[in-house]
């Protein structure tokens, strides 16, 4: 089959279009694709100092990572973090969004307040929470008259970190939900009210099904983001913290290997495995999409 020839106008439109996306394409190539390829490449090497003198060692890094309890431990920690962050941040944000979607006084004020944590730098958020949690001087222990080492007790620390994760992401999820809520036609609710459905019934039979594309989108992006958690843990948990081993995420351990131990090959292997893990998870989620998501 012969391709239809482009007219002059079409041609110039295509050229201009390409010209406009060219900065983005080159940016992605240089800043995203090149590093990805390079990371995969490095994972097959024993890396030398300053990127010189790499020696090819095949799958040795993969064998070492897969047989190290540290990697599996950190993967478990990461999943534990995601298990707290994702469902709670979605559930709380959804309820907040429904409340803030009604006509009420100071509505935009509340919306701003809930969104504020998203505007603050994650490092700053972590520093403030670190001091709130401090066993000796922290506000939490002062208020509740307790003496709990919130971020230094292995069995508690992972929850403490998860709570900060939920707190800082609620506002963002809420805004996305508000957008989704406003697209639900009002007629459904009016009809439900005439039929005598309660507010809670309306929420579960109208809001949730019609919002499911948004919920699904947030669920997917949050899982991906939560599995890459690093900054909260890095800032809140000191290197000599006894709870570190039960909190450190895959990306945290990756950072340790690459920047403290200067073992880039090993570190790269860890993130490649994390990437594969996330890919599988996302693929599985996509499969379930048709089952759970209701498209109008």
């Amino acid at each position: 089959m012969k391709k239809p020839k482009m007219t002059k106008a079409q041609k110039s439109e295509a050229i201009w279009g390409l010209a406009f996306v060219a900065p983005t394409i080159t940016g992605l190539l240089i800043l995203n694709f090149y590093p990805i390829v390079n990371t995969v490449w490095q994972s097959f090497f024993k890396t030398g100092d300053f990127g010189k003198g790499n020696t090819f060692i095949g799958l040795t890094n993969y064998v070492n990572v897969c047989t190290s309890s540290e990697f599996w431990g950190s993967l478990l920690n990461t999943v534990k973090y995601a298990v707290i962050e994702v469902p709670f941040s979605i559930a709380i944000a959804l309820v907040l969004a429904v409340f803030l979607n009604r006509k009420m006084r100071f509505r935009s004020g509340y919306r701003t307040i809930f969104f504020l944590p998203m505007v603050a730098a994650p490092a700053a958020v972590a520093m403030v929470w670190k001091w709130l949690y401090n066993q000796r001087y922290g506000l939490l222990n002062q208020i509740f008259h307790t003496d709990i080492a919130w971020i230094s007790t292995p069995s508690v620390a992972w929850i403490s970190v998860g709570v900060v994760g939920v707190w800082s992401i609620i506002g963002y999820n809420m805004v996305l939900f508000l957008g989704g809520l406003q697209e639900i036609p009002h007629d459904y609710y009016e009809a439900a009210q005439i039929d005598g459905a309660s507010g809670i019934r309306q929420f579960f039979t109208i809001t949730i099904p019609l919002l499911s594309p948004t919920i699904y989108f947030i669920l997917q992006t949050r899982i991906i983001a939560a599995l890459q958690v690093f900054d909260l843990i890095y800032m809140m948990i000191d290197k000599t913290n006894v709870a570190l081993k039960s909190v450190q995420s895959v990306v945290y351990v990756f950072y340790q290997y690459v920047f403290t131990y200067d073992n880039k090959g090993y570190g790269s292997t860890m993130v490649v495995l994390l990437l594969i893990f996330i890919l599988f998870l996302t693929a599985a989620l996509q499969k379930f999409e048709k089952k759970f998501v209701f498209y109008n």
Partner: peptide, 8 residues
């Protein structure tokens, strides 16, 4: 305790 030392 070491927990205090690691936090402060």
């Amino acid at each position: 305790p070491q927990t205090t030392l690691a936090e402060a």
